[in-house]
Amino acid sequence: MRIVLKLGSNLIQTQEGDIDLSFLSKLAREIKTMKEQGDEVMLVSSGAVLCGAKKLGIKEKPKNLVLKQALAGVGQAYLMHIYDVVFSNYGLIPAQVLLTSDVFKERAKFYNSKNAIEEMMRLGAIPVINENDTVAVSELVFGDNDFLAVHTAFMMDAELLVILSTAGGLRDQQDKIVPYVEDIEKAFALVRGVNSEFGTGGMFSKLSATRIALSLGVHVIITGKEDSLLKVRELKTCGTYFKPSEKPLKRRKKVIAMMEEPKGIIYIDYGAYKAVKDGKSLLPAGIVKVEGVFERGDTVSICLPEGYLVGKGKVSFSSDELIKVMRRRGQEVKTILKTNKEEAIHRDNLVVF
């Protein structure tokens, strides 16, 4: 099985703020056993900024982007040193991979990166993947590495994505772990009802990334670092297992979802969201707002009014045209735009997560 493990910064430190060498040793032992069983394992690991702050004695989380980039430059070397020291005790060789979002937008860079990671695994190394924070121009290019993990799973054709979380999994209103999720939308309803440090922030990001992974046909488990990865790889967990879509996206739509750069955002109402989830095209009547400048055939993100990302698609009309006809129906759209088309995004060019 090909597996992507995602570790956040909080996972690699103890409650006292020290590097959790015990957990990293447990991780290495289990990865060694998994490799011996024929599994291929990749890590998507945060922690460069955290490690840089520790090296330089900075106690507070940096808010300034330039400081964050500088700390990442210092900390990435330290982070890889930690992985090298711990993993070497178990005969494992970590290999550093730093990615930026353009890797998933340009075909040549995408396949060059994929081939390099494939070769690392062929040589027996464990790819340790992180966003290249030192040169990233946005603080949330991928969203705390949750989306980077999904992009990695897509690029490397992984079968299982394991997101390790301090929450230990999705929690219900009574703060108990939800063991199994078949309907991801019901999971979002739970998150909105949780008032905790991992509720509307970290867990929402994880569920948003999970929704995309499930549409790709990838199994997803969100669990804590105490869980056994040897059981997790058998889809048994003390965390939360998310069932992938029975009808995963076809290759063309996967490319739209994962590699096409959005040129703008279309916000839709809940009626339109229900319609597109049922396999229908997106009509101008369901559009409540348009952001950005784009032309016919460009790819845009699709969000609910609150800003939740729910899909992507190639538009039939430009941003100026959609502003003229949003909230309008059928013949009215055709008359205003002097066209025979009615769909803002045809279902064949539409991806709903």
Rank of each mutant, 00 (worst) to 15 (best):
A187Q: 07
M121Q: 15
N115D: 08
P62Y: 03
P284W: 07
I265G: 07
G297C: 05
V333W: 01
Y83E: 10
A72Q: 09
M121Y: 02
Q331A: 12
I302G: 03
E234H: 10
V97K: 03
V310I: 15
F188D: 14
Q96W: 04
P244Q: 14
G143P: 13
P94E: 09
E159C: 00
N145Y: 07
A167I: 08
L161H: 10
M120H: 04
A272E: 07
T200L: 12
T210R: 11
S228I: 00
L43H: 08
R327V: 01
V135H: 12
C51H: 00
V290W: 06
K312P: 10
G75H: 07
V325D: 03
H219K: 12
L282D: 11
E106Y: 12
A72S: 15
K105D: 12
V86Q: 06
V85S: 13
A136F: 02
G271R: 06
N349W: 02
R329S: 11
G297N: 06
D157M: 05
K250E: 13
V135C: 12
E16Q: 14
K314S: 01
E40Y: 01
V128E: 09
F147T: 06
E295Q: 10
L98E: 09
S205Q: 03
F23N: 08
V4A: 10
L140I: 13
S228F: 08
F198E: 13
R251E: 14
K206V: 11
M120P: 01
P305S: 04
E261M: 06
I58R: 11
K341R: 14
S22W: 02
S245F: 03
T339Q: 03
I12P: 05
G217S: 01
T200G: 12
V44P: 05
M203N: 05
L207V: 09
Y180H: 14
T100P: 06
G52T: 05
N145I: 08
P94A: 07
V74M: 10
D227Y: 01
P244A: 10
D227V: 01
M156I: 05
E106L: 10
P262K: 07
Y83G: 08
K312H: 08
A28K: 02
G73H: 07
F154M: 08
M80D: 12
V352K: 05
Y241K: 09
I266M: 05
R252T: 04
V232C: 07
I266K: 00
L160P: 06
K338I: 06
K236H: 10
P62I: 02
I129R: 04
I82S: 02
G264K: 00
